[in-house]
Amino acid sequence: MSEVLQREAIVGCILGTAVGDAMGLPYEGIAPDRASRLLGPPDRYRFCFGRGMISDDTEHTCMVAQSLIEAGGDVDLFVERFATRLKWWILALPAGVGMATARSAIKLWLGVKPTSAGVFSAGNGPAMRAAIFGVAIPDVSQMLEMIRASTRMTHTDPKAEFGAIAVALAARHSGAHVAIDSNRWFEQVRDTLGNEATELIALLRRAIESVKAGESTRRFADALGLTRGVTGYIDHTVPVAIHAWLSHPNDFRGAVTSIIECGGDADTTAAIVGGIVGSGVRRDGIPIAWIEGIAEYPRSIAWMQKVAETLATVDFAKAPQQCGAVSRFTTKAPTVKPIAVLLRNLLFLQIVLYHGFRRLAPPY
């Protein structure tokens, strides 16, 4: 992939993650049928006066991107920088944090090393921040090493790692090919994961067969027993997300809409699909009204674009220079003001609480 195409893929990945996250957020945790009655179709933002806001899915993707900018190809430095950001992120009172991620962040504050902070969980947290690895890091082996480090900091169940790798390879394939070859992608996933990921491999094969048979993503989710919505279990999230991607590889609107209509953990599933499809269709393939409809600060669309463009300049083949025992960062990552993040999160929490109370009322 040329430098220009890679930069465009990185921008599309981050913005696609943000748009999918913001579009799916008001639908999170609602069964599909009730979601359509309560909110209507996911064709526009319904979070706050027709505008969208991002959640932890996009925030983690941005923190990964910032940490990659500063670490380059140094995995140990990436772990250090991402752990530091995770600690301060949890201190800013983000709403809707996954239990495994919250416990890991608290363990970091208690002095546990980043390599030991993870908890045994097969949640979809690592997958929600995995797509950016696939488009940002050219070398596959280096990409896998970074994904493992990111995953194990919060989730130690191997299934979480397998799912994150599948998502990263999907974003990588999407960003590098105009015509998506599901068989070629599947073979790479199967060869990479080996014999340990038999359950996920079987589900991914089933998703591909379902797409070829012309089944909708909603019907595929129903066939997996997810009639009440896609759960946060990695082997539920990833196969359904892959189905949405392969069903609409060059149609961002169609892919994101189809995964949200499956209900459940809609912000995370839509963020994953948005990151994968966005890597391929680039910024121009994401509906402009959806991009401009995100009302965020300090992690604004302009700020996220700057993060993406800075990440595209990183040379992962060159480790940061060493100055004594301290690594000197090769590139400065864009930052956000902590007080601005805290104030934003307090406002965000009030909106989330409103949606929670709204769900207690009809229509049921």
Score class of each variant (00 low, 15 high):
361 A>C: 14
75 V>E: 06
31 A>P: 08
152 R>E: 15
24 G>L: 07
149 A>Q: 11
346 L>S: 03
24 G>D: 00
61 T>V: 02
111 G>Y: 09
87 K>F: 06
240 V>P: 01
318 K>E: 08
121 S>G: 02
56 D>E: 08
193 L>N: 09
306 K>Y: 00
36 S>A: 14
6 Q>W: 00
242 I>S: 05
94 P>A: 00
60 H>Q: 15
3 E>A: 13
45 Y>I: 10
117 A>C: 06
237 T>F: 00
291 I>P: 04
275 G>R: 03
241 A>C: 15
32 P>E: 10
28 E>R: 05
315 D>F: 06
263 G>W: 06
140 V>L: 15
233 Y>M: 02
149 A>N: 09
214 G>C: 04
333 A>F: 10
102 A>F: 11
65 A>Y: 00
199 E>R: 12
204 L>F: 01
123 G>Y: 01
48 C>W: 11
328 R>M: 14
137 I>H: 09
85 R>T: 00
27 Y>V: 15
294 I>C: 12
309 E>T: 07
184 R>P: 03
160 A>D: 01
245 W>A: 04
207 A>K: 02
166 A>N: 02
1 M>S: 15
148 R>I: 03
186 F>Q: 06
115 T>F: 12
252 F>W: 14
20 G>S: 11
90 I>C: 04
250 N>E: 13
8 E>N: 15
128 M>Q: 06
189 V>S: 04
338 P>S: 02
219 R>C: 08
167 V>M: 01
278 G>N: 09
312 A>L: 10
314 V>R: 15
42 P>C: 10
112 V>G: 08
263 G>C: 09
321 Q>C: 04
284 D>I: 13
181 D>T: 02
349 L>W: 13
310 T>G: 07
327 S>H: 14
308 A>Q: 06
177 H>M: 10
197 A>W: 08
99 M>S: 11
153 M>I: 05
268 T>D: 11
362 P>Q: 09
136 A>P: 13
95 A>I: 09
313 T>I: 13
185 W>P: 07
254 G>W: 05
117 A>H: 11
56 D>W: 00
253 R>V: 04
294 I>G: 05
260 I>D: 02
74 D>Y: 14
161 E>A: 08
81 R>N: 09
157 D>L: 08
142 Q>R: 15
259 I>N: 04
2 S>I: 03
231 T>H: 00
329 F>W: 02
351 I>N: 04
221 A>P: 03
43 D>R: 05
76 D>L: 14
100 A>P: 13
225 G>Y: 03
26 P>A: 07
55 S>Q: 07
27 Y>K: 06
140 V>H: 14
212 K>A: 13
252 F>K: 06
129 R>C: 01
325 A>E: 15
282 R>P: 08
290 W>T: 08
131 A>R: 05
359 R>S: 13
220 F>I: 12
309 E>R: 12
187 E>R: 12
167 V>C: 09
128 M>E: 02
205 R>P: 00
